[in-house]
């Protein structure tokens, strides 16, 4: 790891100022960024830790939405969102392992937008709103391909607002070594339709499976997906699974999520 300066501001405003420097980088829980720094895949001159910002932590129910501070750990979401949005809490409870969940944050996961991360599926599958220090971004506009988002340089995710669905579930096949999803599907049923978001599968990162959404909006049952397939053209193929295998798993995971939805 190359060396860097380390600062830990106490407010969002201070963090925004600290990030204005060239080559400054925000640090959430560090569960992805610190391994990345060790591999010298990134070499910021300054890390701005967001974990000391109290206003960016916590889970609250506001009207028909669950609002989660960007600096909230996976463990806290798993514990504190369980009654209001059990599908989201279940997803958070299965990220990585217990020690990773004690450090990793929702804002860090969404800002990184790893194509195999769990949270992007929940955010896109819920039609969440990503709130930053300067604006609000709809999930449909936020995810722009593998490791790419609508965030500008120095922009910080301060909170994420998840509309609460009538039913939801997350079905995941974990890649056993990394515990990232090999393929995972988040399904959420709302009054105006069903959303289906797929992670781990596509070279373009998380995506909505619109054919499945249409079928499930008419009939929210696993067999409504019978015969539906996703093209394997854009699927990830690697030593853990071929593109065709991942394409197949999308259908299997979507059915499991629908069957498990509550």
């Amino acid at each position: 790891m190359y060396n860097f300066d380390f600062v830990k501001p106490a407010t969002v405003d201070e963090a925004v100022k600290a990030l204005a420097d060239d080559e400054a980088q925000a640090l959430g829980g560090g569960q992805t960024l610190i391994p990345t720094l060790k591999q010298r895949l990134a070499s910021p001159s300054k890390l701005v830790s967001l974990t000391g910002i109290a206003e960016m932590k916590g889970v609250s129910k506001q009207g028909d939405a669950v609002v989660i501070g960007g600096g909230t750990t996976h463990r806290t979401v798993a514990e504190e969102a369980a009654s209001a949005y059990p599908g989201l809490a279940d997803l958070a409870s299965r990220i990585g392992d217990p020690a990773v969940r004690n450090r990793g944050t929702i804002g860090g996961s969404l800002a990184n937008n790893d194509p195999s991360a769990c949270y992007p599926a929940a955010a896109l599958g819920s039609g969440a709103t990503i709130v930053t220090n300067s604006r609000e971004i709809a999930a449909d506009d936020y995810f722009q391909g593998m490791f790419t988002t609508a965030l500008e340089e120095g922009e910080i995710i301060t909170e994420v607002r998840f509309p609460i669905p009538q039913k939801s579930a997350y079905a995941k096949i974990a890649q056993p070594a990394s515990r990232f999803p090999l393929v995972a599907v988040f399904v959420a049923q709302y009054g105006d339709g069903v959303r289906v978001a797929v992670t781990g599968a596509s070279n373009n990162g998380v995506f909505r499976w619109s054919e499945a959404e249409a079928a499930l909006s008419g009939n929210f049952a696993a067999d409504a997906l019978d015969g539906l397939t996703v093209a394997s053209d854009d699927m990830i193929g690697d030593l853990h699974g071929t593109a065709a295998y991942r394409s197949h798993l999308v259908g299997v995971m979507a059915k499991r999520a629908v069957a498990a939805a509550s």
């Binding site: 560090g30 610190i34 830790s49 990773v100 004690n102």
Partner: peptide, 18 residues
């Protein structure tokens, strides 16, 4: 694995200054 403020964390993936 060590405990930081009562919670298990991986000490190889946390900075001392954190």
């Amino acid at each position: 694995v060590v405990h930081v403020d009562g919670k298990a964390v991986k000490a190889c993936t946390m900075l001392a200054l954190e």
